[in-house]
Design a protein around this nucleic acid. Sequence first.
DNA 1: CTGTTAGCGCCTTCAA
DNA 2: TTGAAGGCGCTAACAG
Lengths: 337, 337
Amino acid sequence: MKKQKITIHDISKALKIDSSTVSRALNDSSRVSLKTKQKILDKAEELGYQRNILASNLRTNKTNTIGVIVPRISRSFFSSVISGIEDTAQNSGYNVIICQSFESFEREKKIMNTLLSNRVDGVLISISMQTTSFDYLKPYLDYGGPIVFYDRPCSFENCSSISVNDYKASYTVTEHLIQSGCKNIVHFAGPQIIDLYKNRKQGYVDAIINNGLEFKESYCFESKLAEEDGVAFAKKIISMENIDGVYSSNDTAAIGAMQYLKFMGVKIPEDIAVAGFNNDPISSVIEPGLTTINQPDFEMGKIAANMLIEQIKNETTNKESKVLDVELIIRNSSQKN
Amino acid sequence: MKKQKITIHDISKALKIDSSTVSRALNDSSRVSLKTKQKILDKAEELGYQRNILASNLRTNKTNTIGVIVPRISRSFFSSVISGIEDTAQNSGYNVIICQSFESFEREKKIMNTLLSNRVDGVLISISMQTTSFDYLKPYLDYGGPIVFYDRPCSFENCSSISVNDYKASYTVTEHLIQSGCKNIVHFAGPQIIDLYKNRKQGYVDAIINNGLEFKESYCFESKLAEEDGVAFAKKIISMENIDGVYSSNDTAAIGAMQYLKFMGVKIPEDIAVAGFNNDPISSVIEPGLTTINQPDFEMGKIAANMLIEQIKNETTNKESKVLDVELIIRNSSQKN
DNA sequence: CTGTTAGCGCCTTCAA
DNA sequence: TTGAAGGCGCTAACAG
């Protein structure tokens, strides 16, 4: 029942000007006289012409669209990254397609497939928690589309990536806790499959050891990025002795833990220092004393989009791995000893 | 530098079978013998054939894609709605393009334009805070594309809509506060331009009046859905006398207010009852005593997508306005008198 | 500056 | 069941 849309041919006929000229005018080519251009533009307006981008894309073999694969848009960090991406993309005239993998490898593969079928000009991807093999990216790379990894980098076919210096951030914040007097610091870790969380754990471990404390594996809890994990962690901590510090390297577990504690009416003792990666504005409300690592989310999105667009345009082959430093926000962490 | 992709013609040549037959086979048409179909499928696999959806879409004049316009994906309510939409869409074989208006009318118009240019099969929209005129939707409707409003309905060209019974929910929760003994209830309202927030306010007003209390306009604060508004509201409340209840009809202001109070170390007195619309799991952490109105977010997304897809497929013209009831979650609200 | 011609890759009559 | 032919709407040579 869709009405037939106006095409350049309709304009062409109405004006007795060839459709190729119409096309040129509509694309603001300099090779059309101002007079005819104006005539064409007016007619287009009059008829309510809307360019059919599908046809244009087919012809030019580009879509002016970039695909973004994200684990979950509901995660505050990611939705900020997306805003950054959209910001940059729009300024450069690109459309953005956002796809959620929900941390599922299967979905990720499927998404990559449709992005290829839709011939997006480039892809930004933060791999899912389950992703261990990257062969599924090959077809798109073979096609010639650039891929940039953001936040969760991985060395594959020397694609570009942009991420945060997780190791350093982790080391710094752990050391900060130690210098505040903590001697028994528990660590809420993320899935160790993901390099990012591995690096964060390593930062914690090294800070512990280099500062003369004893590293205990039993102080490390590995989360699958679910709030329930945090609840379990909270229960464990309550049952443990001596704990005087907590460092969480993922929001989700931390939020879960806090929810539980709040729900149970357990106040985090003043003498337990808490620190964590945290881009959710909310957790600062839950626990204002928290020392937080502030990740450059919006900025990361902008940089990622820029890197990708550059590769799309220049058809350059030089790949790079950018690493951003993070900001440590020290609130009113309790000072011990 | 993009490599030339395999087309049906490559398969056609390799097999000496006409491309039209290849096309049929690839579309699993019944008018191809099983034998040739298998041969074609094998060859396609072997050559790494990837259908060019652009071309297919151009030819068939449909894209199997629906566009979703959302004010902000970072709002918990909306990201759940989106998940619901994606869920349904995927099951029906539709792709989803998510676009954020950031509550800007200008962006909304631009988005609608590119969605039309991209010939999406249908559009789900929750209008921005600034949107007052709907003429910009005309071109898409003229084109024949269906539009369904979600969450923020508006009567335009009798498009379908799906929303929540805001008036009733608001009335109920206000009455609940009154029955708990509240006599001076402040209302954090949303932008009165948006019908939804107007309805919520009306629910509050009517509940107040019908229960024999006096309605005071000075008890109503209008938010622009920014956290700063909440901060301002919190300050006001602190300076006011007699307030024994707060009902917020938007998360954002509520969260802002709570952040501020928490930051200032002000505990919400036990004898002030608080209630609000709230889909952010976090605020229940901030204030576990909160009586909340639980909106069917995920479900709304599914229903919206279903309504739209039905209209796309059936090319039906019957429009409807669905209104969902909400669930009132009464936690440990303080009982007065 | 404008028109002619020829496709982009796919699908869909129509005929065999 | 298969092939031949044409065209979706647009753009990019190449002429003129």
